[in-house]
Design a protein around this nucleic acid. Structure first.
Lengths: 316, 316
DNA sequence: ATGAAAGCGCTAACAC
DNA sequence: GTGTTAGCGCTTTCAT
């Protein structure tokens, strides 16, 4: 292992001097700097960043906690983070939890371990009380709103969005609308969705709600269930355009017309949505990710709301 | 900062003993082990992994070099890597290069810097000769085939795939086929694509080839160009289902029927493809990523080929 | 069984 | 300007 000591010996100077040329310090004789640099180049030497981090207590590395690594919504946020990190010269470490509480905490403790300067939580399974202690070791920002002031937030106002969306559907003349989600009632956003539904349409009949939908196939199956109901919905609000696409395809397979027989609304403005002409409410998750990144590296605890928008296409 | 020293003092033992209980060493009196563990729990102490890495010279962290962070193909490989990393308890750092040579080398030198145990290169811009030296510092595996035996490879036989695909198209009666790519002739796979085309159809007329296609919109525009040709193609082989989807939509917008008026073949079996019924040649990039991960962590230099398959739907 | 002490590779006072 | 030295937080001989 060729380390700073070796270079120092070869150059006939002290490690300090080598360290100085490495870090572009002033007060190094041009002559010595030249010879040191020459040895460095010859030996093709690069400092051990691990040792540097150990001393500095900083890593320029940000972690992104993500439940699944194959979910469009989380992917979009991750992309936003990645976009910014490239500009700002930070590295990003992806931390997939599968909503495992211990795993999540293990990742959080990477802050304590000085492995990460900050963490972005796109979605969590532990309660905030368990997470809060880690804010002492590094910046943690959430992509979901929380009151806790030690947590910075880059979030969307999901409740408002859901309210708007259901109202939009109601205005279009729909009163029997069904919807799908990824997770069940353990998820904050599912709860908000439920609440918004109730606000607009009143009590929800349970057959109109389906969880565990992530991909196209899930949408297809959900479509089958929903459209087989004796009292079937006139509109479906899917949690993602991929899921919506699956529903769309099932509808077509049984010769139902969209939007005449069944209206379909997706989320997140995914490619499949533009391809199939599915209306979508875009929560601009990429922007959420970009903003979250800015917050972490600035160790900011601001609460920043990212606007959503409904993109009208022909499925509704 | 509560470190091992503090714990040692509080427990009234030496740092060595603390280190031993931390690492589950034998030869620690059950009594002492208990008291040390108690303090550790009370103090909510976790060791500084950075310091541990420094000594061990290992990080359990793998880097994935990716040109863009918003390209379906690279995303799929990344997902494959992520899938495996969760199982094996490794962290993954995403290293986006935008095909910048210096950035790419900078990332490679993270191996030397002891920041990464290994690196997976999904696509590169430097030549292998520049990359080879870094194999001395850690395992580097490529998702593209190379003869260099210091590089492990998890790859697809692109040339064979392209040959098969074009032959498939020819068998379907197409002789005028156009195609698109992300990058131009600087890319290895574009070169192979060209060669395969020539092999099957003979000389390529330049209007039948378009580069810089990544997303749906690119496909739409490519479709417009290709279908506006006086001598237009009867089939298009798109570099991805998203791009294919854009072409499909343009075709529909001018009332051309798919596949009767124009046949469209995509790649990578993306959701939009199943949604729109686009035939696709699936290179199983997720598997490529999974296999690549296995290779890095085993420091294997094997060359493993992942099979591709043509998925027939209705666009051809 | 347990602890003292010597590093891992580097930075940052502090002295000269 | 340059070098000596004391750490950063931990592991690992080597004694005891």
């Amino acid at each position: 292992m060729t380390n700073i000591k070796v270079i120092a010996k070869m150059a006939g100077v002290s490690v300090t001097t080598v360290s100085r040329v490495l870090n572009n310090h002033k007060y190094v004789a041009e002559e010595k700097r030249a010879i040191v640099q020459k040895i460095i180049d010859e030996m093709n030497y690069t400092p051990n960043k691990n040792a540097i981090d150990l001393i500095r207590g900083e890593t320029r590395m940000i972690g992104v906690i993500i439940p699944y690594n194959n979910n469009q919504a989380f992917d979009q946020m991750l992309h936003g983070v990645l976009n910014q990190s490239v500009e700002r010269d930070y590295s990003i470490t992806v931390l997939p939890t599968k909503y495992n509480k211990d795993k999540e905490i293990e990742y959080l403790s990477m802050l304590k371990n000085k492995l990460l300067d900050g963490i972005i939580i796109t979605s969590r399974t532990n309660n905030w009380e368990s997470i809060l202690p880690y804010t002492n070791y590094g910046s943690v920002v959430s992509c979901e709103y929380t009151d806790h002031q030690e947590i910075g937030c880059s979030y969307i106002d999901r409740y408002a969005s859901y309210l708007d969306t259901f109202q939009y559907l109601k205005d279009k003349g729909h009163s029997k609308v069904a919807f799908t989600t990824v997770r069940g009632m353990e998820s904050m956003s599912t709860k908000q969705l439920m609440a918004a539904y109730k606000e607009v349409f009143g009590e929800l009949q349970s057959e109109f709600y389906l969880s565990d939908c992530s991909r196209f196939e899930d949408g297809y199956n959900a479509g089958k269930k929903l459209l087989s109901l004796k009292k079937r919905p006139t509109a479906i609000y899917a949690n993602g355009d991929e899921v919506a696409g699956g529903m769309y395809q099932y509808a077509q397979s049984i010769n139902m017309r969209v939007p005449d027989d069944i209206a379909i609304l997706g989320q997140e403005n995914q490619p499949i949505g533009v391809g199939m002409g599915i209306s979508s409410v875009d929560h601009q998750l990429i922007k959420v990710g970009e903003q979250a990144f800015d917050l972490v590296i600035n160790k900011s605890r601001q609460k920043i709301q990212i606007p959503y928008r409904i993109i009208e296409r022909s499925s509704i």
